[in-house]
Nucleic acid binder design. Sequence first.
DNA 1: TAAATGAATTATGAATTCATAATTCATGTC
DNA 2: GACATGAATTATGAATTCATAATTCATTTA
Lengths: 235, 235
Amino acid sequence: MQQMTKSNGVEGLGLVRPVLAVQLANALREMILEGDLPAGEKIKEKELTTRFGVSRTPLREAMKVLAAEGHLELIPNRGAIVTKHSSEDLADVFPVLAALERLAGELAAERATDEQIAHVISLTVALEETVEADNRPEYFKINQAIHNAILTAAGSETLMRNHAAIAGRVHRARYQANLARTRWETALKEHEMIALALKDRDGARLGALLNDHMMAKLSSIQIVLEEEKHSHTTK
Amino acid sequence: MQQMTKSNGVEGLGLVRPVLAVQLANALREMILEGDLPAGEKIKEKELTTRFGVSRTPLREAMKVLAAEGHLELIPNRGAIVTKHSSEDLADVFPVLAALERLAGELAAERATDEQIAHVISLTVALEETVEADNRPEYFKINQAIHNAILTAAGSETLMRNHAAIAGRVHRARYQANLARTRWETALKEHEMIALALKDRDGARLGALLNDHMMAKLSSIQIVLEEEKHSHTTK
DNA sequence: TAAATGAATTATGAATTCATAATTCATGTC
DNA sequence: GACATGAATTATGAATTCATAATTCATTTA
């Protein structure tokens, strides 16, 4: 939901003066998603301006953008706080993400080129190897690539935009929660079925698989969070 | 426990000084959705500041918000233009909206209270009457109320937020395109089936019906647009 | 000691000012 | 007359300044 470096007349050349508000918005988003600005924390305008070496004007514009994206909550005359993404929030966000993935699957089954399908299949093969090699960082990376490839194959600007915006809100939970070995292997099987459904261009099945895959991911995250909570309270 | 402060005391009352940026964002959104700022039109900051009687600072903050919502496109050093929602855009946006409505249906079937279901049913009855009375403005109004009621019954903040954002982009097309009599009566039948599925708490069916209902709406709009295009070129 | 009051400080909201990029318009050249 | 060049104008990006609301903190009072 953000306008990245769009056409600015001098395409490709690094000669344009960057728009601070955009850069600040990206930096802030990154900080929030990476947890450098913990959820619930109150944003201190002045601190950020000195940190970034800019004035309040572009920073405030950036904060308005972040608020529109749902990452910040602006309270009139009282500043901003980082939106908290609690366990309940995950339960709220994931079904929406899953619904969009389902649509992506349905559309991709219709619209994907043979090359795009082949790409997803080869990525899925690479995914298997990461499991065998017990390489989690690489698994996350390829997993993300697969979902992106399907999104791209769906060929919907609106879908891509909104998926990105919503996925950002749970990015941390998705790619940081250390999944258990059993869930990992199950997820791989799901991915194999997903690749197969795409190869068959079975939109209904592909959509359903992607939806279920995402909801299963939610369950595994919630289990991990529950365990962490226990180990924390019983320490 | 903390004592109630003065500020808490006026909470909820309209006594707080309004935040201009928020008001301007609402006003601009309204103007864009109502077509007062036609798609493709270049926004002149100065003109708007004089019109609203504010300085550029809050206006620019509002424009950043509108851009984040996809209503404006900001071009560095060159101002902003109103995002155009062409016929192709509708074909891109509606499937996403339909996917969210499907999710809304699935969730509402599980979570709706009996009162909420009764409300949707009574609204559907009222909808029938508007068709009999040939009262299109009232039909649109109640139609919107039904979809909102189901969204609310779904009980998902994320879903509501994103649905609202996306629905805004096609609001004009949905509620201004003059639907044909036959489509109107078909839509009513669809609404009756929707109310029934909700009453039965049949989530899969309700979701499918809502999805199809939205896609049918797209088709009828496209037919109207196609006709208008013809009558225009053959004039 | 605890609560209440009010001044001082700080933070936010918005207007103004300054800097720079883009556009317009006049002039000159071919 | 068409085009190119450069000054003048205008618009945008960002810092600063001003106004007002919120918070802190010292003082008073019960």
